[in-house]
Simulated assay, not measured.
Amino acid sequence: MSYVVKMDEKNKTIITVIQLLGFQTPQALTFVLFFLFLLMYCVTICGNLLIITLVSYSKTLHSPMYFFLSQLSVMDILLTTDVFPYMLHSMLEKDSATMSISNCIIQFYFFAVSETSECLLLTVMSYDRYVAICKPLHYTLLMSTQFCWITILTSWILSFLSGLIYTIEISKLQFCSPNVIDHFFCDLGPILKLSCSDTTIVQLESTLINVVFACAPVIFIIVSYVYIIVTIFKIPSITGRQKVFSTCSSHLIVVSMFYGTLIFVYLIPRRGQLLNITKFISLLYTTATPMINPIIYSLRNKDLKQVIDRIVNNFLKMHLHHY
């Protein structure tokens, strides 16, 4: 199979296939890491499917907060399914694991869509907590079912459209050898490093989209939580403060993890010696965070725990009755 095509006029080697180096680990650790990542993938899918099922199953969870939580699970499933399968494949195949440029761009497209949609969703979730805590009397009116569906559909549409802006421009580029990306998935920076075309337009679009869909949501979330914290401190009793804060603590933890890793990877200047650290942090927000999100919400949310206990008890009763 031919992996390259020659350009006669400039004598450059145009590549059509790339190799993701992934994690360069000793052979003895390869299978251990493979099964560890496979287990993480299974836990992520099962945990997020559980959240979606619980929210759909229980009428007590039919509220905006849990509706948004189920959508977060959908986005986490999309992200991990985009990244995990090829990463696992490349760990087994090592040097022979390759990916076409078109598939690499498609992987980046769905990665961009899932990350953008999660930024927007976490922003909507912060607004939901702001209304619930700061304007409780208007909560039912402001957070109607129609509003929730409009915000979710808008988030998905904007995410798919912004991802297309990247993808269309990247697909116009030419990519030259060497055909190696020192990463475990096709991110924008590593893709552009392979290009022998002018990437100015793509970089400008990237900056603009990051400002609109990443920086602006962060500012909105920070402002929302300033109002939330001020409102919480106005509550006279410590017990009351703790009870109110517990309703948004899970969201705050998820936001901190998500944006903390993104800021480290994309805003802190990269140096050669930090490459492995960058890959490790990228692993956190592409694989670990989607796995941890359902656990955080399940352990810190009384309603979810009650629904899980009820389902487990019903299952045990049916099982015991059968025998």
Rank of each mutant, 00 (worst) to 15 (best):
I106W: 05
I106P: 03
Q107E: 05
F108N: 07
F110I: 12
F110T: 09
F111E: 00
V113H: 15
V113R: 06
V113Y: 12
S114Q: 05
S114E: 04
E115G: 11
T116E: 02
S117A: 14
E118F: 13
E118Q: 14
C119F: 08
L122V: 10
T123P: 13
T123S: 14
T123N: 13
V124L: 06
M125Y: 05
M125Q: 15
Y127V: 05
D128R: 01
D128K: 03
D128C: 13
R129A: 01
R129Y: 13
Y130K: 13
Y130F: 15
Y130D: 09
Y130H: 10
V131W: 11
V131Y: 03
A132H: 06
I133S: 07
I133N: 02
C134N: 06
C134D: 12
C134I: 07
P136S: 09
L137S: 14
L137Y: 11
H138L: 14
Y139A: 10
Y139S: 11
L142G: 05
L142W: 10
M143Y: 00
T145H: 10
T145W: 09
Q146D: 13
Q146L: 15
Q146F: 15
Q146E: 15
F147E: 08
C148F: 10
W149V: 12
W149A: 12
L153R: 03
L153M: 10
L153K: 06
S155M: 04
S155T: 13
I157Q: 13
F160H: 11
L161Y: 08
S162T: 09
S162K: 02
S162A: 06
S162E: 09
S162W: 01
G163K: 03
G163P: 01
G163E: 08
L164S: 09
I165Q: 01
T167Y: 09
T167W: 15
I168H: 07
I168A: 02
I170D: 01
S171K: 06
S171Q: 08
L173M: 11
Q174R: 04
F175N: 05
F175Y: 14
C176N: 00
C176F: 04
S177H: 04
N179M: 03
N179T: 00
N179G: 00
I181Y: 01
D182R: 01
H183Q: 09
H183M: 07
F184E: 03
F185Y: 12
F185M: 12
C186M: 07
C186Y: 02
L188F: 15
L188R: 12
G189N: 13
P190K: 06
L192I: 15
L192E: 04
K193E: 06
S195I: 04
S195P: 03
S197G: 07
S197Q: 05
D198A: 03
D198T: 01
T199Q: 06
T200I: 04
T200G: 01
V202N: 06
V202F: 02
Q203V: 07
Q203D: 08
E205Q: 11
E205P: 06
S206L: 02
L208S: 02
L208P: 00
I209M: 08
I209D: 00
V211G: 08
V212G: 00
V212M: 12
V212S: 04
V212T: 15
F213C: 08
A214C: 14
A216F: 15
F220D: 06
I221K: 05
I222Q: 07
I222D: 08
V223L: 13
V223M: 13
V223T: 13
Y225G: 02
V226C: 12
V226T: 10
I229K: 01
I229P: 04
I229M: 03
T231E: 14
I232W: 10
F233N: 11
